[in-house]
């Protein structure tokens, strides 16, 4: 059992969720409430990671993060190591390829709030920030919850993009999914079986926990 890889995967998933939560709230709200010309384009861009092959997506990320890229050079000069094939680079890639999993459910969550309810909040004297905190977040919570769980679970399971952007450096970029792949390649069927079972258990538990929590939220509202 490769505990280092599991711990890395969990850290990666955790960081991705933490970074994407505010992004999901901001973007989900924007797409749910506002009408603007480029809205369809923005929604399409957000959806793109769902349809692109991980290799294509990974390739573009490599180009964007790699040596001689604007972002890559900036990172190199700031932190003294390159962005690709590092944990930070993996987090950045993970954040980007999880955008649809975080934003879409969040957007649906905010869309489920009747416009009059938001107007009522304003007419109750609530500032936009207070309205977000007291009214919108509690009501959009099931959507945000789904967003976070999908992101977490999806990060644990992602393989192609991680391999492209991160390589397979133990303790730095070797996630559990990649570790399982290595075991299979090395004919260690027992190790692969154990780690697969652990991954299935963690994923199942996470999703079940969310479903249970969101059903509680549902009951709270009725």
């Amino acid at each position: 059992m490769d505990w280092t890889a599991l711990w890395l995967s969990l850290r990666l998933a955790g960081w991705t969720v933490v970074i994407l939560l505010p992004v999901a709230v901001l973007m989900g709200r924007l797409l749910a409430y506002r009408k603007f010309h480029a809205k369809v384009l923005v929604e399409a861009l957000v959806m793109l990671p769902l349809v692109l092959p991980p290799t294509v997506f990974g390739f573009y990320l490599l180009v964007a993060f790699g040596r001689n890229s604007l972002l890559g050079d900036l990172w190199q000069s700031l932190f003294g190591h390159q962005l690709v094939f590092s944990f930070q680079g993996l987090v950045a890639a993970s954040v980007i390829f999880n955008l649809p999993f975080a934003i879409q459910p969040a957007q649906r969550g905010f869309e489920s709030i009747a416009p009059e309810v938001r107007e009522a909040a304003a007419c109750c004297g609530m500032s936009p920030l207070r309205s977000l905190w007291k009214v919108e977040l509690p009501l959009a919570w099931p959507g945000l919850m789904t967003a976070m769980v999908l992101t977490f679970a999806h990060t644990l399971g992602e393989f192609g993009i991680v391999l492209m952007v991160g390589g397979s450096i133990p303790g730095e970029t070797k996630t559990i999914a990649i570790s399982i792949y290595d075991r299979v390649q090395g004919f260690d069927d027992k190790g692969a079986a154990i780690m697969s079972a652990v991954l299935v258990t963690i994923s199942l538990f996470t999703i079940a926990l969310t479903l249970w929590l969101s059903s509680r939220v549902g009951r709270r509202l009725s």
């Binding site: 009747a114 107007e119 909040a121 007419c123 004297g125 500032s127 509690p138 709270r220 509202l221």
Partner: peptide, 28 residues
Amino acid sequence: AHRRRVGIVFQNYALFPHMTAAQNVMAA
């Protein structure tokens, strides 16, 4: 809107569904 001292009763009431009657009132 939130800086105007206005009380409004909407056609469909637009109550805050996650709050009790008392909490709805206190929200204003």
